[in-house]
Amino acid sequence: MLVFGNFMPGISAMSAVLQVENLRTHFFTKAGVVKAVDDVSFSIDKGQILGLVGESGSGKSMTGYSIMGLIDSPGRVIEGRIVLNGQDVTGYSAEQWRSLRGNRVAMIFQDPMMTLNPVLRIDTQMIEAITAHEKITREAARARCRNALSQVGIPSPDERLMAYPHQFSGGMRQRVAIAIALLNKPDLIICDEPTTALDVTIQGQILYEMQKLCRESGTALMWITHDLSVVAGLADSVAVMYAGKIVEQGGTAELLDHPLHPYTKGLLDSVPSRNVKGRPLKQIPGMTPSLLKIGNGCAFRERCMRRTNECEVAPPFTSPELNASHKVRCFHPHVSTEEALTA
């Protein structure tokens, strides 16, 4: 399976669309240094979908912004490499980034009302996205916009091109945002909670479009979400983030069926459908720590049932199981031998 090659840099380096190595994005605030992204590594192959899961404040969006070169002061990418299609983009200038964004790599945000300019017609915004990156006549650009709109399932695209963002519903607006991301046929699309604000049936439609797109065009997707069940149906591999670090990473089925990290296990156990109806849910005690106050050691230790004195030191990112692609950052993971004993 392609999935397993994903996490071994070197082996899949040639086919990887995106490789992130030891990325650190820190924010230098008056209150102290916030380590929003702290030593994050992963890679995505052509046509693959990576689900990046975490709660608010876990650094999942900042990881996406770092890859897009969108980190503003007081934040800075202080370490690490971002390799897009074999090209190291880490030290790019603002101009180089601009030629890359919306062209080779695109991003879709949570709130489509914030990403579309409310005073410009859809066609103006879409054509601009094309002409910014290549020399092309307006007619040809307009034709491409129309195709992109019909590709994401917007009926009567010619009329819709002439409309303003407020004339669209939430789901339609998100489709327009996706269509804009598709315009220049990017190699990678980063989706930051694109369906969180949408209704269930509309979410289903968007997931359908994205999945189709990935299969047909081979675009790689990075899907940032807090919802494990969306990732279960969509992604090839999953990375779970907690307090700026990836705490567990692996193939989707592997990770969801045999979670190793106590945090992943806690998240999965707290999903209502995994609990006996009407009985109290299994819950993770406490709340996400402030990124200013983690100190050394495992960030999850305050909420963890399995902590020992050992956890005061930062645990390494290892694969305790036979499957080398399933990695966890924990001294006391839920390994399968132990499951067999307790079962």
Partner: peptide, 15 residues
């Protein structure tokens, strides 16, 4: 349409 943890790599069909 409800995403579920037990369904993997499903084919999304939309209402």
């Amino acid at each position: 349409e409800v995403p579920s943890l037990t369904v993997r790599k499903k084919d999304f069909v939309a209402i």
